[in-house]
Nucleic acid binder design. Structure first.
Lengths: 370, 370
DNA sequence: CCGTCTTAGGTAAACGTTTACCTAAATGCA
DNA sequence: TGCATTTAGGTAAACGTTTACCTAAGACGG
């Protein structure tokens, strides 16, 4: 019975298709080709129609599951794909396959050159394997991080890289999301979706930093690091202390300043330290901190390294380029970014919105290189 | 006739629903609640079923198109949404609404701190308006740029920001994609999807840079910039020359070096210039170039600014922090990124893949601060 | 000549939303 | 009481793919 019906339907379809193809050959096909070439998202159905097959067949060819598709049909489909610049709609594809080939990367501060490099490396690595990345900046704010996590989940990312941060991630949320996760230099709960942890031996790093300074003869070394409550910092402090212990030196609590890893904190912490006590070297737990520290030292007329040595941590690509505060032409980079996005969204909201043509005026900033 | 049938269907449905609700109240509902609370992407249908309404109703409530939904129903739905941590599937939503509230940002080199700042600003601005961004790095490679454009289109971004680059974008592709576009400091064809252009007055910037140096008494000033063929560079050169003209100074072609905007080229160009001719100042068309230049000058034992003054361009946030090459602890940032992504994708490919726990070993790099 | 493979491709459901349109019941008003 | 309006929510199609399963026709062996 079912066979009978299906057979009839099959025949009917054949008749319909035959007449449709004939119709297209009679001119309509040309019209469609022209229209599609013009633009406007071509779909798999358009290709199918023009090739005289069904969408399923096109899909199979596109996905190379085409053992059962004849050579001529394949060729016809690929030719149309090329001609019409067909690009599959990743959204539809993701919806059904439940995979987007996108990876989310969450960092606490993209302005820290360390994360810039990290993000770039992740992105490159991902692309080499056919994935793309979405970057999220959490500003070390748990709320923002949770929002990003939810965002990434709702956009169906296949995995998430959670990079170093003072934050302890929301374990419940992570557990609920069930998205494969890689943590980098970060304390995370042991979820079953944790694909890997990539950590740096912070204890050893801090130890090396301090020993390097101790070997150079320093006995009073300041220690500047991030959030004092994060394991991130506690571990480094342990390494710092071990170096002292091994050298038979005491650790003076007055020499410790912990807060954040950015250059602003480096500047502030160093000022505080200079006001409070004396030292001949600094062991900074990020290069950004070290950059801030050198600025503070110079402010007070202290020469680096003669009056005070400074060690950083990370070896960001900028480290070897630090030579002198640069005189330059100022551009309002952030303002430009805001303008761009504002203009774009205004346009999205209302396509007739007047176009903006902004010409930003640069100004001179004089520092020490001129 | 239709009414009659529809009416019957409606009644039937009511009966079915009534019995279903009763069934749930009898225990099954609890089971479902527990199961969903457990996790696993809750859908609008789950909420609907538990609330005893249809998906359409839930959708209306969620999208605040709920003038016609009663208060109790609304409350019931919101309560379930909270309880089950329901998050809408953006993919399904994008598919039907043809809008993703995502903006693509394409930059030539994220490692250039200028673009880091720009990208961050774009992202922040976008988030403030309920959009997210996807970052793409083109490496100033037209092929990569085209690939990114296609990628962004296929992922249904609502708009694209195309930031400064030496490249002339693929007009045909852009035209075909029909995605609203903002160009920043970039030559683009006048497409009808061009929402805005944000440009910097490069001519004036370069003019100011040169005049600043001329006023300081310099007469032989080197000019270092990006791709010599890009309008980007031609325009700046015009400003540089105008400053000379106005001061009655000649421009020596030997003092010009154009190639790229990164610090590597700054280093190379400066070496070349030093080998070829003499000058007492440099007008660099990006801060990254200037950073490379100062490194090259120092290499040759030239003091900045006494032996040679250096002007940058952009005022990246790092400019004021440049004090001395930093001794530091080296970490293989890129390697770490690669490891992370590799591990993640291996896991995606095969969930039973052995987990990796990597401990990266830091090393000392000594420069001038210690 | 019949049954079985193989080849080439078709069918239809599914993914999770949104939305235009429909309807049943209740209410209001004359 | 009868009709129109409002209220509250339902129906079903649509978005562009993918994929498990089905089928028709021809080839082939016995």
């Amino acid at each position: 019975m079912r066979r009978g019906v299906a057979g009839a339907v099959g025949l009917l379809q054949d008749t319909i298709r035959a007449s449709r193809v004939a119709m297209f050959d009679g001119g309509c096909r040309q019209a469609m080709l022209v229209e599609l070439r013009g633009n406007v998202a071509t779909t798999i159905k358009d290709i199918a129609q023009l090739a005289g097959v069904t969408a399923a067949t096109v899909s199979k060819v596109l996905n190379r599951k085409d053992q059962s598709i004849s050579e001529p049909t394949r060729d016809r489909i690929w030719a149309l794909v090329k001609e019409l610049n067909y690009t599959p709609n990743s959204i539809a594809r993701s919806l059904i396959t439940r995979s987007s080939r996108v990876i989310g990367v969450i960092v606490p501060d993209i302005l820290n050159a360390y994360f810039t490099e990290l993000v770039r490396a992740c992105d490159q690595a991902a692309r080499e394997r056919g994935y793309s990345t979405i970057l999220c900046n959490s500003d070390s704010d748990p709320q923002k991080e949770a929002a990003h996590l939810t965002f990434l989940a709702s956009h169906g990312v296949d995995g998430i890289v959670l990079a170093a941060s003072d934050l302890i991630p929301d374990a419940q949320l992570l557990d609920r999301l069930r998205i494969p996760l890689v943590s980098m230099d970060r304390e995370v709960p042991d979820l079953d979706c944790l694909a890997a942890r990539i950590d740096t031996d912070y204890e050893q790093g801090a130890f090396l930093s301090a020993r390097h300074l101790i070997e150079a003869g320093h006995t009073r070394i300041a220690f500047v690091s991030g959030n004092p409550l994060a394991s991130n910092t506690r571990i480094r402090r342990a390494g710092f202390e071990r170096a002292h212990r091994e050298a038979g030196l005491p650790v003076d609590a007055e020499l410790i300043e912990c807060g954040a890893f950015n250059h602003r904190f480096g500047l502030l912490a160093t000022r505080t330290l200079l006001d409070r006590t004396s030292f001949s070297a600094m062991s900074c737990m990020s290069d950004m901190l070290a950059m801030g520290a050198t600025v503070a030292l110079r402010e007070r007329g202290l020469a680096v390294p003669d009056d005070c040595a400074v060690m950083g941590f990370d070896n960001i690509y900028i480290a070897p380029l630090l030579v002198r505060p640069l005189s330059t032409i100022e551009r309002r980079i952030s303002q430009a970014g805001y303008l761009a996005i504002g203009a774009l969204i205004d346009f999205l909201d209302d396509q007739t919105h007047p176009r903006r043509m902004v010409l930003m005026e640069p100004t001179v900033v004089q520092r020490e290189t001129t």
